[in-house]
Computed example of a mutant assay.
Amino acid sequence: MTRGARVGRAALLASALLLAASPALDAAAQSSRETERRLERVRKELRDVAAERRRLEGERGAAARELRQVDERVASSSKALAETRARLAEEHAALERLQARRRELDATVATRRTELAALLRAAYTIGDDAALKLMLAQDRVADAGRLLVYHRYLQQQRSERIATLQAEMVELDGIEARIQDRRAALEAAQTEQRAQLAQVEADRQRRAEAMKGLESRFNDRSAREKALGSDARSLERVLAQLREAARRAEAERRAAAAAERARQAREAREARDSGTAATPR
């Protein structure tokens, strides 16, 4: 192959490299721009999702604190209701004991009244001369006197016992009335506490549902943020590869252009040298 042929072939090769490098550079540049636009969209969505995730995280924390406070109110209301029920049970037991005591007193008073009535009837039957009749009914005056004293003492004792029992019954009536009042107040408090507990439990249920929704949205945004972060890293790697390919293509283009310039300079120099050699001296 002659020198001119070799030079021509090198020129064609350099031109081919330049022609091939230009579309490759354009394609690489286009791919880089598209990848950059996609990366920017992903980054923007990632920023938006991250901001929403942080907002939901704050709302979730506040909702969790409020839910704990409601749990404390539920526990407090349940405790108060349990204490009221216990006090009602105690008052009910006390009332039953009083009523049992009242029945005993009623029976005792009835017995004492029967005994006293019998004594009074006996005294009435004997009449105003009861003392004389009792004395005459005895063989000795001393025995009759003692019997009369005993008779009067028995009447007085039973009358006093009946009065004592009646006073105790009056006192029991007062105690029973106070217990009934306390029971009525406790039952009213129990009704109010039940309503409060139902309201607090309904509030807790509502807040628990809201917390569940926040948790679901937070998890969704967290998963989306993670996926977008992975996409962004993948696009960054692709963009880096495209830029590296563009850099290599640009280097090859510049090398080809430099080779072409060198070839042209060499041809020009050879042409000058050939012209100088052909000129007669």
Rank of each mutant, 00 (worst) to 15 (best):
R224W: 00
D203C: 08
M211T: 09
M211R: 13
Q199M: 07
S230C: 00
A208F: 06
R206T: 08
R182D: 12
D181G: 13
G229R: 06
G229T: 07
T191A: 15
A188Q: 10
V200L: 10
R207P: 00
N219C: 05
Q190N: 06
R183F: 11
R194F: 09
A223I: 10
R221T: 11
E187I: 08
E215M: 11
R183C: 09
Q190S: 12
A185K: 06
G213H: 08
Q193R: 09
L186H: 06
Q180V: 00
I179D: 15
A232G: 01
G229N: 04
L228C: 03
E225G: 14
A208P: 02
D220L: 12
A185T: 01
L214Y: 00
Q205R: 05
L197S: 08
L186W: 02
Q193Y: 07
E209G: 08
Q196C: 10
A208R: 12
R217N: 14
D231I: 02
R206Y: 04
S216H: 14
R183I: 03
M211N: 11
E215A: 14
E215W: 02
R224D: 01
E209Q: 13
L228N: 05
R182T: 01
R221Y: 09
T191W: 14
A184V: 04
A223D: 07
E192Y: 04
E192N: 09
R204P: 04
R204A: 00
D181Q: 15
F218W: 12
